[in-house]
């Protein structure tokens, strides 16, 4: 029962923080709320016995990606409510569309007959040992390829963000 309660707590935090990301006026608050949201998702990972992923998640998202975002926001000096107001009609459309999408997705999930799992089959799938074994045996090549991807992304970012001399 305790785990149910924990789940609901975490879920509430996740949803609330996610909504705050969307509705915050200032980008810097959005970033902060998103970090909070990521922490709650990391909590979900722990609940699901995916300890390795939980740690990686916090390191990559909260530690790296969000810091990068924060830097960008500060670098571009976006920390003011400069965003012009959208019309109420646009806002209503966005919210209604989001809600409708939620309903449609739910309906789709209901009808896909997942053979819903009541409880986990085994509990040790998320351990570092297991994930590591998978990663370095079956997924060896993709894993190595990620380095290529990173190199490409790195060079790409440098080229894009560099001050263009003759433009």
């Amino acid at each position: 029962m305790t785990s149910d309660i924990v789940f609901f707590l975490l879920a509430a935090v996740s949803v609330f923080t996610a909504l705050m990301v969307v509705f915050s006026k200032s980008p810097i608050y959005s970033v902060m709320w998103l970090i909070a949201c990521f922490f709650s998702i990391a909590g979900h990972y722990v609940m699901l016995n995916a300890q390795f992923l939980a740690i990686v998640h916090i390191i990559v998202y909260a530690g790296a990606i969000m810091v990068l975002m924060l830097f960008t926001v500060m670098l571009l000096n976006l920390n003011k409510e400069s965003e012009p107001h959208k019309s109420i009609f646009t806002k209503a459309t966005a919210v209604i569309t989001g809600g409708m999408l939620f309903l449609v997705l739910l309906a789709a999930m209901r009808s896909t007959q997942l053979g819903a799992y009541e409880a986990p089959v085994t509990t040790d799938v998320g351990f570092v040992q297991k994930v590591g074994m998978k990663l370095f045996t079956d997924y060896m090549l993709p894993f190595e390829m990620t380095s290529v991807l990173f190199i490409a992304a790195m060079i790409g970012s440098v080229v894009l963000a560099k001050k263009e001399r003759n433009l």
Binding site: T97, M100, L101, L105, A108, S111
Partner: peptide, 20 residues
């Protein structure tokens, strides 16, 4: 761009609905 995204989401929904 916002309108494009909007159309994209609507289209996604329509596809799912057709499936349903």
């Amino acid at each position: 761009t916002g309108f494009y995204i909007f159309v994209m989401v609507i289209a996604m929904m329509v596809l799912l609905l057709i499936q349903l």
